[in-house]
Write a protein that binds this DNA or RNA. Structure first.
Length: 316
DNA sequence: AAGGGCCTCAACCGCTATAGA
DNA sequence: CTCTATAGCGGTTGAGGCCCT
């Protein structure tokens, strides 16, 4: 390997860390806390560059790191999140307590990627390897089944601080730890002054998504006006009978569902078969309406959502 | 037992984002 | 606005362990 070293100083050690070096680093960080990585090696008596120290700590020595085998639940979460986020290892790691981005990346490359291939699924696209590109172009008319309505949800999301709302959607979809109120409150970098009303709209739109991204608004007293426990799974039973839910699990595997949701999030591809029969509504005009909206049009959007709700017969 | 190939994963590299002067 | 330092990210590498012949 011929690459210029990240640390130009002479006498900088590279390669595997010794237990003695680990101890020095741990002792220093326990005393002084994290930060100041540039000057840390000298102060801690280590012949390493600051970057190397930071990585050693972040990926291996940090006390909250969970070691050992990945559980089936963790594997499932990684696959779902990868379908949504791609190779955003740091983002995926935030949803797996105690796991580092490096560890997840390695596990993906050495285990999960192969396993998906063996199942005949392309690990990059999460689509069946032999599946053909049906049309290569976006259909002219969207059908408002579960996917169509969810696409509308994404349109709204895309108009308002895309990244934070993708996190929001991910929270809805994963439905384990992230809740909407938290995402809404924590997305401090959102520059839109309409953050809360946007979230409300997203909840309405989500509820309109034939229940597949359904939200329980069971606690409107939270500061954001949203539920503390909004999740994909929680809202399920509000919209479907046990028989219907059973049917869905029979017909739709997790990977397929995530693929559908990935499509939604990227607006891409042809419609995957609708998960639940619902009145087919041509929403081309609705899409155009959304496209014509600007960020200040919350009021009109709310009217739009109401009309959408009445079209498909779902009320929030 | 030897050695060659394969696999895993800690560590590194280059790049980008961000903060502060 | 520009420059510099620092932090963080994703891609890649290679040492070392394991397995097979």
């Amino acid at each position: 390997m011929v690459r210029t070293p990240c640390c130009k100083e002479e006498g900088i050690k590279k390669g595997a860390w010794t237990p003695e070096e680990d101890q020095k680093l741990i002792a220093y960080l326990q005393l002084h806390g994290e930060g100041g990585w540039r000057t840390l090696p000298e102060k801690a008596g280590l012949k390493r560059c600051g970057k190397s120290c930071r990585l050693r700590w972040a990926n291996y020595l940090r006390p909250d790191i969970k070691r050992g085998e990945f559980t089936p639940e963790e594997e499932d979460t990684i696959i779902k999140l990868h379908a949504l986020k791609g190779n955003k290892w740091a983002a995926i790691a935030t949803c797996l307590a105690g796991r580092t981005d490096n560890e997840i990346k390695n596990y993906w490359n050495t285990n999960l990627k192969k396993r998906l291939k063996q199942k005949g699924i392309d690990p990059t696209t999460h689509k069946p390897i032999n599946s053909t590109d049906q049309t290569g172009s976006e259909p002219k008319h969207h059908k408002l089944g579960s996917s169509g309505s969810a696409r509308l949800l994404n349109r709204v999301a895309s108009k308002y601080s895309v990244d934070s709302n993708r996190d929001l959607l991910t929270g809805i979809i994963i439905g384990n730890s992230t809740n909407i109120a938290d995402v809404s409150q924590n997305s401090g970098d959102v520059d839109s002054p309409t953050k809360n009303s946007t979230s409300t709209l997203l909840n309405q739109m989500a509820a309109a998504s034939s229940g597949f991204i359904s939200i329980l608004m069971d606690n409107t007293s939270t500061s954001s006006g949203l539920s503390d426990n909004c999740s994909f799974s929680d809202g399920f039973t509000e919209f479907f009978s046990n028989e219907e839910i059973s049917g869905m699990y029979t017909n739709v595997d997790n990977v397929g569902l995530m693929e559908e949701l990935k499509d939604i999030l990227s607006y891409g591809g042809a419609d995957v078969g609708d998960i639940k029969d619902s009145p087919e509504v041509n929403v081309t005009d609705d899409m155009d309406f959304l496209d014509s909206c600007n960020k200040e049009d919350d009021l009109d959007l709310e009217k739009f959502v109401s009309s959408l709700d009445s079209k498909i017969g779902v009320f929030v």
